[in-house]
Amino acid sequence: MALTRRDVEAVAHLARLSLTEAELERYGAQLEAILGYVESLNRLPLEGVEPTTHLSPATDRARPDRPAPGLTQAEVEALAPEFRAGSVRVPKILEE
């Protein structure tokens, strides 16, 4: 398992993290070590085994379509780093 610096950078972009050169190096090496460690799973015969996606034996949990009170606009405003015209304000979407 060889991870290039570009691999780590691409993953960091997917996760919206910007990493310094030193971090790219360090996380790259650690990620490689951890991936090497989990390689042992390849020794395990898993053909025909169903993946465990949910632990609960229960199924079909749903709620009635009944309205419940939520938050006020003021409460949303109190949480938000920037708020204008009743809305959460964010920087522009497109890059230059």
């Binding site: 939520g70 938050l71 949303v76």
Partner: peptide, 19 residues
């Protein structure tokens, strides 16, 4: 349980879950 009514004031039909 937030309402789905159209045209309400912005961020007035929200709760911790849908936020």
């Amino acid at each position: 349980g937030c309402s789905t009514k159209f045209g309400a004031a912005p961020n007035s039909q929200v709760c911790p879950v849908c936020l």
